Amino acid sequence: MTVQACQHCATAPERRHQVETGLIMWICPACNNRGDASTVEARAIASWHLVNDQDMPAHNCKGEGVARFFSRGGMWGARCPACDYVDEGYATIEGARAGWARALR
């Protein structure tokens, strides 16, 4: 499976593996955009693609910001880099994606 470049800065992501826990994560070394950490390689790659989905709607602010997903305190959220609009409090990346899309309707 080909791992796509970061949609925020076009940098190729790095695969990081924490041997002690077995967690794998794909992360952009330039801007720190990242997917979810998982013990399953396929899930780690899939989550990278979820946070870099070109089909996610842009925020309807004047900057039309592309969602930037983050995890804080075990919960996921999305932020517009153009205006700092934040939608957070989701248990999964999938929930944060759905919340972002719902908020922009």
Results as ranks from 00 to 15, higher is better:
M1T: 15
M1D: 11
M1Q: 12
M1E: 12
M1A: 14
M1W: 10
T2F: 12
Q4I: 15
A5T: 11
A5C: 12
Q7H: 14
H8A: 04
C9D: 06
A10N: 10
A10G: 03
T11I: 01
T11D: 00
A12S: 09
A12V: 03
A12G: 01
A12M: 09
P13E: 00
E14A: 02
R15W: 03
R15V: 00
R16Y: 02
H17Q: 12
H17V: 07
Q18T: 08
E20F: 02
T21Y: 02
L23R: 07
I24M: 09
W26V: 00
W26Q: 11
W26Y: 15
I27M: 09
C28K: 04
C28Y: 08
A30N: 13
C31G: 07
N33W: 05
N33K: 08
R34W: 08
G35K: 02
S38F: 07
T39D: 10
T39K: 15
T39S: 09
T39N: 09
T39V: 10
V40N: 11
V40H: 12
V40G: 04
E41M: 14
A42K: 10
A42N: 08
A44S: 09
A44T: 06
I45E: 03
I45M: 07
A46D: 12
A46N: 08
S47L: 04
S47I: 02
S47N: 03
W48T: 00
H49L: 05
L50N: 07
N52W: 00
N52D: 03
D53G: 00
D53T: 00
D55N: 15
M56H: 13
M56S: 09
P57K: 00
A58C: 13
H59E: 01
N60V: 02
C61V: 01
K62A: 13
K62I: 07
K62D: 12
E64V: 06
E64A: 12
G65P: 02
G65Q: 08
G65Y: 03
V66R: 15
R68L: 13
R68G: 06
F69Q: 04
F69K: 02
F70T: 02
S71L: 14
R72A: 15
R72M: 11
R72H: 14
R72I: 14
G73H: 13
G74M: 07
G77C: 04
R79H: 05
C80T: 01
P81Q: 10
P81E: 11
A82E: 10
D84Q: 13
Y85S: 06
Y85H: 13
D87N: 12
E88C: 04
E88H: 12
Y90L: 01
A91C: 04
T92F: 07
I93K: 13
A96L: 07
R97G: 11
A98V: 11
G99M: 08
W100A: 08
W100K: 04
A101K: 15
R102Q: 14
A103I: 04
A103E: 11
A103K: 06
L104I: 15
R105C: 07
R105P: 14
